[in-house]
Design a protein around this nucleic acid. Structure first.
Length: 601
DNA sequence: AGGCAGCGCAC
DNA sequence: GTGCGC
DNA sequence: GCCT
């Protein structure tokens, strides 16, 4: 006789890429869909940390219960939730084997703080089925957590079923003559709990639409995620020509002030950029996250007509060309570009002649070095600049570590600016350091302008305690990082001495470059590196993922809880900056992505 | 039918 | 508060 | 514009 199971909540994690199996299990096990009704949580999880993360996603903030004897109840935290997951597993129906003492430690006092939630390996379920009775849970217990607090509403969203993609209206599907094959075997997660009792059923009646779907190359599993931070997005992809069109439309929308459009096109670009096959049909495209009917229509036009109308219009619109020219001035965004345009200005000369005093200092610098800032920086020069910075840093205080981030780290052959993150294992070394570094670089004439210097972290001039009001969230730590955005120019050139002899005001011919220097406290340096390395969408989605899925707030200064702002340390332990960055990935429940796989733009 | 990242700076 | 860059 |  099959045993009767207590109410079970099934974690979708690691099952979500196999929706059929997930559905089978959900039906076979009589799962509850609200974790609060469950006595037990099952999942294909092996790691405590992962289990805790998954619970957090569901709105349960837990701390591990060490399964030795009952911990001393020093727990004064009072989380008075009346109904909660009981500490004991009480089968919900009669007829279960009486001998199963499922609770680990006998607890007579049912104080709320004793409430724990247990996460078991799915194998417990299959094993129990096979045995015809409920097995002891000890061998299968992955994680036992005491509920610290219920988090606000953290949505259990993201179901990720490819089959739920709604069939689009007939877009004459170019028959996929060219079949694609995945590069590797499908991974179901090896140890999957195959089918003991229930034979696989047909989930769908086969309509022609379904057949069209079935004929498509399978979507790589990572593309089931709507978060680009969960996908490898290489610098180059098979659909770059189409992407170029989308990027043109996106920029046109940007110049027109259509923020939402920009967002939508950015999402679509990021998804297509991570798709490893050459697209063969609009239907195929419409399966990707962020790619709906509009994007599919654009692809169809592009494929059949050879061009995309909106992109053509953008290219040939002279007003847009002017807006774009202005927009490329450092310090000029979409709003200022249109503002300039509305003043009747049509060229950089117009700005200089008619508006020089009315534009900001940043914009003046942007105009002055317009051509130079648009020149790409070869990797070699990026490295040169970075090594100067590191040398100067170490000259002030030895032991600095540096990672060159930005496009360089993503593998681009050249960059628009230079981003370096510096840190030092000694916490004190980074404090108040940026000013010193800037002064020494200025002394040797590397820096021609400071665009911004932000020092929330360190002492800002006279007022050492000025920022303390904003510190309660980061206990015993720094709240932020120091950041300088500079105009950089190599001070020497081959014929310098000669030139100066002839003319004391001889011009330095080296190109002016924009350089970001970030000084991060060691304990959050992994976050800084991560936060400064990804493409725009990667970084956006990272923040979004943290908020939606984990209830965390991520930025380059660290990870904090959303509800109370408490700092979450994901970087504990030895290791260099890159190790710390990896810890952040795993602490956030994310698969490692090499920087070269964060090219979402 | 609401949300879309979220921060610090200049102005 | 808005605009900007990241 | 797409998602939930």
């Amino acid at each position: 006789m099959a045993p009767t199971f207590p109410p079970i909540y099934l974690l979708k994690w690691n099952l979500e890429h196999d929706p059929k199996e997930l559905h089978r299990l959900e039906e076979e096990i009589d799962v509850v869909f609200d974790i609060k009704e469950a006595k037990l949580v099952l999942g294909k999880v092996k790691l405590k940390r992962r289990a805790a993360l998954e619970l957090r996603k569901l709105g349960l903030d837990t701390e591990e219960v060490v399964t030795t004897e009952s911990e001393p109840d020093t727990d004064t935290d009072h989380n008075h939730h009346e109904e909660q997951i009981a500490s004991q597993i009480v089968p919900s129906a009669p007829g279960n084997p009486p001998a199963q003492r499922l609770a680990i430690s006998p607890r007579s006092t049912l104080r709320p703080s004793d409430e724990t939630i247990k996460v078991l390996d799915l194998a417990w379920y299959t094993g129990s089925l096979n045995a015809g009775k409920l097995l002891p849970i000890e061998d299968y217990l992955v994680y036992e957590g005491r509920i610290k607090s219920k988090i606000l509403p953290v949505k259990p969203k993201q179901t990720l079923l490819p089959a739920q993609v709604e069939p689009r209206r007939q877009i004459s599907t170019v028959s996929p003559t060219q079949r694609h094959f995945r590069t590797g075997p499908r991974k179901f997660g090896g140890n999957s709990v195959h089918s003991s009792s229930q034979p696989a059923r047909l989930l769908h009646k086969t309509t022609s639409e379904d057949e069209a779907y079935a004929a498509l190359p399978p979507i790589p599993k990572y593309l089931h995620s709507p978060y680009s931070c969960q996908r490898p997005t290489p610098l180059h992809c098979p659909n770059e020509d189409f992407l170029s069109e989308l990027r043109i439309i996106k920029q046109a929308r940007n110049l027109k002030g259509d923020e939402v459009g920009v967002r939508a096109y950015s999402v679509a670009v990021a998804a297509i950029a991570s798709y490893p096959y050459s697209l063969t049909s609009a239907l195929e495209l419409s399966r990707l996250p962020g790619c709906g009917s509009k994007i599919s229509k654009l692809w169809q036009d592009w494929k059949t007509l050879g061009h995309v109308e909106e992109a053509d219009e953008a290219r040939s619109d002279p007003d847009l060309q002017v807006l774009d020219l202005f927009w490329k001035i450092h310090g000029v965004g979409e709003a200022s570009a249109r503002d300039f345009f509305s003043k009747g200005w049509r060229s950089l000369d117009d700005i200089v002649e008619q508006g020089w005093d009315r534009i900001s200092r940043d914009q003046q610098i942007g105009v002055k070095y317009y051509d130079e800032f648009l020149q790409r920086i070869p990797r070699e020069e990026v490295e040169k600049i970075a090594s100067v910075i590191l040398d100067y840093a170490n000259h002030i205080r030895d032991g600095f570590r540096m990672v060159i981030c930005g496009g360089y780290r993503r593998g681009k052959p050249d960059s628009g600016d230079v981003d370096v993150v510096l840190s030092h294992p000694n916490e004190n070394a980074t404090h108040r350091f940026l000013v010193e570094l800037l002064e020494s670089l200025e002394r040797d004439e590397y820096i021609t302008h400071r665009l911004i210097v932000s020092m929330k972290n360190s002492d800002r001039g006279q007022n050492p305690l000025n920022w303390k009001g904003s510190m309660p969230r980061s206990r015993g730590g720094f709240d932020s990082l120091d950041h300088a955005f500079l105009v950089w120019q190599e001070p020497t050139w081959p014929s310098k001495d000669e030139d100066l002899k002839g003319n004391p005001d001889a011009r330095n011919p080296n190109v002016h470059r924009r350089v970001d220097i970030i000084i991060s406290p060691w304990k959050t340096a992994g976050c800084a590196v991560l936060g400064w390395s990804g493409g725009t969408m990667f970084e956006r989605d990272l923040r979004h993922y943290c908020k939606q899925q984990l209830g965390f707030k991520f930025d380059s200064t660290g990870v904090r809880r959303q509800d109370n702002g408490e700092w979450v340390d994901l970087e504990k332990g030895d290791g260099d900056l890159l190790v710390k960055e990896r810890r952040v990935f795993s602490g956030l429940g994310l698969e490692w992505r090499d920087p070269t796989e964060r090219c979402t733009d």
